[in-house]
Design a protein around this nucleic acid. Structure first.
Lengths: 137, 137
DNA sequence: CTACGACTTCAAGTCAACTTTAAGTCAAGA
DNA sequence: TCTTGACTTAAAGTTGACTTGAAGTCGTAG
């Protein structure tokens, strides 16, 4: 596949694909003349990268998860830590989703005045309030 | 509470608190001389903002969710849409968490070669691969 | 053969979300 | 009174993740 095919199939712009390759997140299997040629599995890898972004990981963190030509070691302890971190995030988001759903139906003048909303949010916030990806590699 | 008290209690730097106030995300209840004075409920609000960030919303989107002095209307349809969006994100992250957990224990040479990992990631990616917050206000 | 369109590199530009810096205000303690 | 330290503003700087632009390289249709 050439870069435009990958872009079309994945929805990721060619410029981003070049950028990701430069960062070592994906790689082209070779060149036809001057043009990059990609293996079909790059699509899967891009899905994984997009997923990591949604999960709030930085490209560097994702690099550690999915592996990178430059930085080789993929440490299973780190994967477990990421999984745990993600689990905490999921709990927060679940409480937030419920809070949003309730807020949409609630008649309280302001969400912050609704005890149910506040309880859900308190639940979501419990155990650390800091932004995503607040832990180191 | 003065700004450093809020910073200490919330973990959010004073510079960020001023920035959030400028954006209308939080507000000080008044001034003592030149210094801001905050009501205790700002802590709760900051928790909600942090939560929104974890959920992948931009400050502008969060502004729509939690309300803003400048932009008043908080539309319940929008809240439901955000809840739905969040639900999709939660499903993805759950699959990713399971994938990471499995990858940590799996003996396959590379994650991408492990069928279980790939299935979980495929599950996570199904129904749209694009990054977070890809929908408009 | 030459012009076109799709690729290439490399450098610079953009954007959101902050952070830092410089210069100033003020209450309180020595 | 003078100094110190925590606040203030406004503007400039930083970072991560891309995007855009300029200048160049190809394969191929006319």
């Amino acid at each position: 596949m050439d870069i435009s095919e990958v872009a079309k199939r994945s929805g990721v712009p060619a410029s981003t694909l070049r950028y990701y390759e430069e960062k070592g997140l994906i790689r082209s299997i070779g060149r036809q003349g001057i043009r990059r040629v990609f293996n079909a599995n790059v699509i899967e890898r891009l899905a994984l990268i997009a997923l990591g972004r949604v999960a709030g990981f930085s490209l560097d963190e994702i690099s550690n998860i999915v592996g990178n030509e430059k930085k080789p070691t993929i440490d299973s302890d780190m994967l477990l830590r990421k999984a745990t971190e993600l689990d905490r995030t999921i709990q927060k988001l679940t409480a937030m989703r419920d809070g949003l759903q309730h807020a949409a139906a609630c008649t309280a003048p302001s969400h912050m005045e609704c005890p149910r909303f506040r309880r859900l949010m308190g639940l979501a916030a419990s155990g650390g309030i800091k932004g995503a990806s607040s832990n180191k590699l």
